[in-house]
Nucleic acid binder design. Sequence first.
DNA 1: TTTGATGATACCTGTAGGGTATTGAGAAGG
DNA 2: CCTTCTCAATACCCTACAGGTATCATCAAA
Lengths: 305, 305
Amino acid sequence: MTRGNRNVDLRHLRYFVAVAEEENIGRAAARLHISQPPLTRQIQQLEEELGVTLFTRTPRGMELTQAGELFLEEARNIRALVEQATERTQRAGQGKLGRLDVGIFGSAILDAIPKLLLAFRNRYPDVKVVLHTMTKAEQIEALRQRRISVGFNRMLAPLADLEIKQVTTETLLLAVPAEHPLAAQPVIHFAELQDHPMVLFPTGARPSFIDKVIGLCTDSGFQPLISQEVGDAVTGVALVAGGFGVCLVPDSATTLQFPGVIYRQLADTPPNFYVDLSCIYRKDDQSPILAAFLDTAERYREETA
Amino acid sequence: MTRGNRNVDLRHLRYFVAVAEEENIGRAAARLHISQPPLTRQIQQLEEELGVTLFTRTPRGMELTQAGELFLEEARNIRALVEQATERTQRAGQGKLGRLDVGIFGSAILDAIPKLLLAFRNRYPDVKVVLHTMTKAEQIEALRQRRISVGFNRMLAPLADLEIKQVTTETLLLAVPAEHPLAAQPVIHFAELQDHPMVLFPTGARPSFIDKVIGLCTDSGFQPLISQEVGDAVTGVALVAGGFGVCLVPDSATTLQFPGVIYRQLADTPPNFYVDLSCIYRKDDQSPILAAFLDTAERYREETA
DNA sequence: TTTGATGATACCTGTAGGGTATTGAGAAGG
DNA sequence: CCTTCTCAATACCCTACAGGTATCATCAAA
């Protein structure tokens, strides 16, 4: 038994389907924009490759044999699949289809990231976005191991193989217990924080938002009174609600409406009284999905500037 | 958006899969028994046709992009389908796969046909045999309209467009009511039938088995006493059981064991005291399935000769 | 720096797919 | 019965492209 299908190619299928549908080589040739003789030869060749008579030649044209009927079904099916495969691959190549693994940190899901992901899903509905909660250090490792394609974090330091792109900046607010003395004041000056215990976050890899806060204080000439260091903003605000002190948070933390916690703007704030939210990704990652995502992030940044 | 897949062909898929699996163009080329440069070009061409980067070139070789991963799955799938399609079509072309529509008459299902169909199904298990019960005239029309490929009947007359092939012959027996006078005799001579009413079958297109029986009688010098004409052998034997008379039947009718009916051989039978069972099919039918069936029928005839 | 992988390029060649002209074979029509 | 029409098949030519050889470019490891 010869393995003839080695030389069967999609052209044969296209031609075969045309002839089967037209039941006439001449018309099929016209439809295919070629002349009749080459089409005759291609059909003969296909029959020879398969070792099967696909058509019975009648004076009125070409009529499918039983085997031909079967092959017609198969050929149509294969052609449709090829069409679909190329189309899907093209969409994947344009970043419109596939999967994007994203690393996020505990409390970054408060404001910017949900909005950004929503915008991305609207533009690329067939890209499956998978979120992985992980710390900054874990994100960097996961990026290098290609377990994620992009991470979100704050206060990212430059790295040789990773690119950092700022998504948004947030100014800082003070989370205060409702019964706290500061809460009663009409205006709170930043320098007043030196007299009150503060909750800081996050624990983990430095530099982090903790260093940011400490830096702001030292720049203003005082050392903060550290009440607690906790893992993330959510826990921090929960401790504020529990009376552990005040806490500087990015303004997106206002999404957290704990009973007994109020958010206050500060007066006389030092320069750099804001914190960035950036995304981080491999410099050598050419994935069109990542490109599409970064483009969406860029638009988001411009819109919210 | 270019419809580039027009020129994607199966060779591209074969090459692509090899490169994707080897992750190295040189090794893939060796596996494909071609040299490296043409393979490089084919892959470039495929990427260009699709408008998608399928591989990232690294100093260690070729690595699939996300879109490439997707296309690999699709390509493997398509290649398997082509393999399957050609294989199935080849089997269909050899008569090993497909469908055979067979016309049979009411009582021919008694002996030969079940055995023959069984033999055919054993040799060609993937051919679906569909039985259609129809009269001789209906079979001929159905053959011409290609609703069936082969019919079974007795006493077929030659026709211009249809071929007749004898499958078997059966000698005749007499079905007698148990309490009939003839049943008591140790030997029944054919000529004695002139004194007893007979049930004849089948009604419908002539010439038929009825003419056969009448002809046997007239050749022996008498006119049969006709009790009833009925549609088929089953009804005929049923009437014998009801005392309507005796009935000449092909010996396969002994499959019908009605209470009160006994089958007797006759003595002094005239020549041609048998009836044929033939199959009939279109002379111009080139179907390999029909050919396979006729071959099985021929073997059956030889084995039962 | 050198060496040794890798894939990419340049250029040639032969084949096979496509074109035109023609033939052969039934069916239809006068 | 001969002609005519309509099919597919054949003969023959030409060109585009798959495949070959030789060489280059690049990067990593020694």
